[in-house]
Amino acid sequence: MTDDIHARTTANRLRLADLLDSLPECAWDSPTLCAGWSVRLMAAHLIQPMLIGFGRFFLASLRHRGDTAATIDALTRRIAQRERSELVAELRTHAGDRVDPPRVGPMGPFADSCIHLRDIARPLGLDADVPTGDWLTLLEHLTSPRPVPALLPPGRLDGLSLLAVDASWSSRSRIGGRRGEISGPAEALAMAVTGRRAALEDLSGPGVPTLEGRIPGA
């Protein structure tokens, strides 16, 4: 399973490199679904885990008093000063790198490779996407008993069930019944569950208002 996740992460990073390479220069200053981050910053963030080892990250975090989000943002902005072509080339070069962050494992980078592609493509109105099977794998993880906390805050899915209308998948067997059901494309389900409010408009069902109220920025 781990080898498969790494292989799919590699494929998605190459998709991301293709997407970034296809964008006009002006699009690199466009906002993504990650608040405060442009496409350029997202490109830098995608290669940050492969360029900055745990030791360097730890030292950087000390300067930010252990604030992981602030550390990531600072490192990302430093890497983003590189030329656009270099950022894309680095992403291609390191696409196959195996990154297993502590307490996150390979699912973290895999989730990033799915979600961040759409973080870029959705605001630009582009169809670029990962395979539906990747979204289903991510949804299986998000609805598992112990999802990565950085991906899914505790309690966000309490009382809710998910139904993918573009695949034979639902979380009812684990979360229960039709109470609080939310239906929509697998991509939109995963994006909304991980905090992307823009994806809520692609969902329907009695559980949507509950989910919306649990996403910051409501």
Rank of each mutant, 00 (worst) to 15 (best):
D3Y: 01
D4P: 00
I5F: 04
H6E: 08
R8C: 07
R8A: 14
T10A: 13
A11C: 09
A11W: 10
R13W: 02
R13N: 10
R15L: 15
D21Q: 14
E25V: 13
E25N: 08
C26S: 14
C26W: 04
P31V: 00
L33I: 10
A35R: 13
A35Y: 01
G36C: 08
S38H: 07
V39T: 06
M42W: 01
A43S: 10
Q48C: 08
G53I: 08
F57R: 12
A60T: 12
R63H: 03
H64P: 01
R65K: 15
G66H: 05
D67N: 15
A69E: 15
A70L: 10
A74P: 02
R78C: 00
R78F: 04
I79C: 00
I79R: 01
I79L: 07
A80E: 05
A80K: 03
R82V: 03
E83N: 01
L87A: 08
L87D: 11
V88F: 06
V88C: 06
A89M: 03
A89L: 05
A89V: 02
E90R: 11
R92W: 08
R92V: 06
T93E: 14
H94E: 09
H94D: 11
A95H: 09
D97W: 11
D97H: 15
V99F: 13
P101M: 12
P101N: 07
P102M: 09
G105L: 04
M107W: 13
M107H: 06
G108Q: 03
P109V: 09
A111G: 09
A111E: 12
S113F: 02
H116T: 04
D119T: 04
I120P: 00
A121D: 02
A121Q: 03
P123G: 04
L124C: 08
L126H: 13
D129T: 14
D129P: 03
V130K: 01
T132D: 10
L136I: 15
L136R: 08
L139M: 10
E140H: 15
E140N: 14
L142V: 01
T143I: 03
T143R: 06
R146E: 14
R146H: 15
R146D: 15
R146Y: 12
P147Q: 05
A150G: 15
L151Q: 10
L151M: 15
L152M: 01
L152F: 01
L152Q: 00
P153K: 10
R156G: 06
L157S: 11
L157R: 11
D158Y: 00
L160Y: 07
L162H: 05
V165M: 05
A167E: 11
A167R: 09
A167Q: 08
S170C: 13
S171M: 05
R172D: 12
S173G: 07
G177V: 00
R178W: 13
R179I: 09
G180A: 04
I182G: 02
I182M: 08
S183E: 15
V193T: 10
V193A: 09
T194W: 10
G195R: 11
R196K: 03
R196P: 01
A199M: 10
E201W: 04
D202E: 14
P206M: 02
T210L: 00
T210R: 00
E212L: 08
R214H: 03
